[in-house]
Design a protein around this nucleic acid. Structure first.
Lengths: 116, 116
DNA sequence: ATTACTTATGAATAAATGTTCATATATTTT
DNA sequence: AAAATATATGAACATTTATTCATAAGTAAT
């Protein structure tokens, strides 16, 4: 056995599937996007903002977490453009930047609710 | 100042939002669910299986990764019920277990494709 | 039964990630 | 200008997670 050949492999099918695959960078970005939803704190923040524009301290109080922890996570959400914000006096009010987000949350919620 | 009072806080609104929030466990599960999509390798595997039922070694070849790495990730996908499998002789063929998955992938892909 | 092939798994390592703590920045009020 | 309020941030620490390596387990063929 010279190199290591896997006899069973159907190179034609593999090649075809590969050619139809979205480009690497796109799949990477997609994973990065979903990664945002893969944290309990961020999910909670999103669900809060789904209902109500709110400031950092209120969210922290509501979730029983520190201001710092929430602020760090809001930064992630802000960077990834999932939330926007506006200043009102001393406080900064955060809200969802996009109604798309709601669809994705609902779709996921629907899925996990259908499990046996 | 006795304890630490945040004057700005609107406890009524906070309480209302909190009462309408899905239960803790549900939000945790949702985050766990999205976490699955938050990895490039798993995203790639899902996109492959979206097109074609396929075995471990073929996927590994197609993605240029080791058999072991793919097998480990397939286990995650299997545990979370995103893929199912059937045996055919020596090989095991994996496929998506649910058409819901495709919707979620599409929704995400749509979102990241709309960015400026 | 022995060999070959395919998949699964456990332990180890490296990398990524979330929270905390301390502190900086920014705005308003006095 | 100084004090108070609200938010942001950097470093450190602990935890999680993905891959690799070696090997076990299961199936088929000789």
């Amino acid at each position: 056995m010279e190199d290591k050949e896997y006899i069973h492999i159907h190179e034609d099918v593999v090649a075809q599937v590969q050619s139809r695959l979205p480009e690497e960078a796109k799949l990477y970005d997609l994973a990065e996007f979903f990664k945002i939803f893969g944290d309990t704190t961020r999910i909670k923040i999103l669900y809060v903002l789904l209902q109500q524009e709110m400031c950092v301290l209120d969210i922290a109080l509501l979730l029983g977490m520190t201001q710092s922890a929430i602020s760090h996570q809001l930064r992630v959400l802000k960077t990834m453009q999932l939330v926007k914000f506006r200043r009102e006096g001393k406080t900064i009010l955060y809200s969802l930047s996009d109604s798309h987000i709601e669809n994705i949350l609902n779709q996921g919620m629907e899925h996990i609710s259908e499990e046996e």
